[in-house]
């Protein structure tokens, strides 16, 4: 090829390309993830079915605790648990997807792009938030149909949505970080264990004052207790700031930490 030809090729290349910006890449990656719900529903359905099962089973099993200085309405107490649990598993799904794509080689395509690195994290994060809306809305509808009361009104829905989305993001970033380090589906059990350990060692099932022994001690300091308090703020009583700030702070801190964990993992993959 002649020097003129080379220069022309370079000019064609340069004229075709704009500046690779973060937001369009984030949107494309999120869109892809959402579209894949319809293409591979079997991978998504459990994250909807499981929370619905959870709220029905728990509210039925623990209905007898009503009035025993626990809660007035079992559906209202367990709906936030089911929503937050469902959101956490949607977050885990982001890690599973990353695992699959790293193993299949598709992730190399993303790493080879000149797109801003942060977009590879924010894309799955946006997708997680969008996908988490499905179990959120489904469980809320089931809970309301099952007799849940929401004394906090619209603010109660908002605080639960905030708690769910924050939890989804924490688990998404945490699991992406694991995926970048393990680079295989071996990370899957570790990802799932994270949800159970953080949720069920908090006030997932019963109020803190009913817990005893080591479980009480752990739940008292577990930040997820604050997140559950935030999620239930408008579902068991009126929304009050003292019930919310701890959860908001916990979400802010753990979203930041998990994002940092994922970011460090991603930077290890991209020289």
């Amino acid at each position: 090829m002649t020097a003129v030809g080379l220069e022309r090729g370079r000019a064609d290349h340069d004229s075709l390309l704009g500046e690779t910006r973060t937001w369009p890449v984030v949107v494309q990656l999120a869109r892809r993830s959402v579209v894949l719900i319809t293409r591979l529903p079997s991978a998504f359905i459990p994250s909807v079915v499981f929370p619905v099962f959870l709220i029905l089973a728990f509210s039925g099993s623990f209905n007898g605790l009503r009035g025993a200085n626990a809660f007035d309405n079992a559906m209202s107490w367990y709906a936030p648990l089911a929503v937050i649990q469902g959101a956490a598993f949607v977050g885990v799904g982001a890690g599973f997807s990353a695992n699959r794509e790293i193993e299949s080689g598709f992730y190399d395509r993303l790493l080879l792009a000149p797109a801003p690195t942060v977009s590879l994290l924010l894309g799955p994060a946006l997708a997680t938030v969008l996908r988490a809306l499905v179990p959120l809305v489904t469980v809320m509808v089931v809970a309301l149909l099952g007799g849940a009361a929401v004394p906090g009104g619209a603010l109660g829905f908002a605080t639960l949505t905030l708690a769910a989305m924050g939890t989804a993001l924490i688990h998404a970033f945490w699991c992406l970080g694991l995926a970048y380090r393990f680079k295989s589906q071996r990370a899957a059990p570790v990802m799932q264990i994270g949800v159970f350990v953080t949720n069920f060692l908090a006030t997932a099932q019963v109020p803190l004052h009913l817990m005893t022994g080591w479980l009480h001690s752990v739940a008292r300091v577990n930040p997820m207790t604050n997140v559950f308090r935030l999620g239930r703020a408008g579902w068991v009583e009126d929304v009050r700031w003292e019930n919310c700030w701890g959860g908001v702070l916990a979400l802010a801190v753990f979203i930041s930490l998990s994002f940092w964990f994922a970011w460090r993992g991603l930077k290890r993959m991209i020289p």
């Binding site: 500046e19 690779t20 910006r21 494309q28 894949l36 794509e101 792009a113 000149p114 797109a115």
Partner: peptide, 18 residues
């Protein structure tokens, strides 16, 4: 990605390349 179409993959790749 086997679940995506050729067109979708090209659009994604184009976005990744700016």
């Amino acid at each position: 990605d086997p679940l995506m179409t050729g067109n979708e993959l090209l659009r994604l790749q184009a976005t990744l390349q700016g």
